[in-house]
């Protein structure tokens, strides 16, 4: 069975190396996955996708993408309810809430986002809610929301509903988190025995956890 992965708004929401997430999926799944690069005005067929990914971008671009995505609100809701995989990182996950500033968003989840003047930066090292892995990454945002679902246990951040994951963490999140990636591949390919074999990725992850300044974030 061939998987179909949709990388939405690859040219608008790709501010901090988000394309790394697609590259790593490609390098693992090879010809087992068909990757669709889609942007505004391209036709989206959610019923055909097994994984949808959207990355981080400047607020103006989020609003451009939102305008396009609104046409598919019902399709997206159905997609999420059907337990399909959806990962939205960085500012793009604001689109699934009620509002972004004064703009109506998709209204799938119960949070609103607001833009602020200065950017806010913090690094994250946190357990996800099912304790399956520790996620490392960085947040750099010029807006935030009042989501209270808290996918991450130790920080007030992120949302998980069925197989939808939204988080302000940006960049190549899947590459930096091999445990998380391995779990995702297991579920996507329905192969519980899958083992991620990229030793460099595993070493880099361990390096990240070992670095001194991360220790202070630990409980």
């Amino acid at each position: 069975m061939k998987l179909t992965i949709a990388y939405l708004y690859y040219d608008l929401l790709n501010l901090c190396g988000e394309n790394g997430n697609i590259k790593v999926l490609k390098s693992i799944l090879k010809d087992k996955a068909d990757i669709k690069y889609l942007t505004i005005d391209d036709k989206k067929e959610f019923e055909k996708y097994d994984l949808v990914y959207i990355g981080h971008g400047i607020n103006e671009n989020v609003k451009l993408a939102l305008n396009d995505l609104k046409k598919y609100k019902n399709d997206i809701e159905k997609y999420i309810e059907n337990n399909k995989f959806f990962i939205s990182t960085g500012s793009s996950y604001e689109m699934f809430g009620k509002k972004i500033d004064d703009v109506e968003a998709l209204n799938i989840f119960d949070y609103s986002s607001k833009t602020f003047e200065k950017n806010e930066v913090f690094e994250v090292n946190a357990f996800v809610d099912d304790c399956s892995s520790t996620i490392v990454g960085i947040i750099n945002r010029t807006s935030s929301n009042d989501n209270k679902k808290n996918y991450f246990l130790s920080i007030n951040e992120g949302i998980k509903y069925k197989n939808f994951i939204g988080t302000y963490l940006l960049g190549p999140l899947l590459v930096r988190n091999p445990e998380f990636l391995e779990n995702l591949i297991k579920k996507l390919t329905k192969n519980p025995d899958y083992k991620l074999e990229n030793k460099f990725a595993i070493n880099a992850y361990n390096d990240t956890l070992a670095r001194k300044k991360y220790k202070k974030y630990k409980d």
Partner: peptide, 28 residues
């Protein structure tokens, strides 16, 4: 220790690579 920018570098276009030697604390 953000490394996201490494993914904005287009290494892929380089062909005929014999070896790529990664040096330093960020080698992995």
């Amino acid at each position: 220790q953000d490394v996201s920018w490494l993914y904005d570098i287009d290494f892929e276009f380089i062909t005929d690579v014999d070896k790529f030697v990664c040096v330093g604390p960020w080698k992995n």
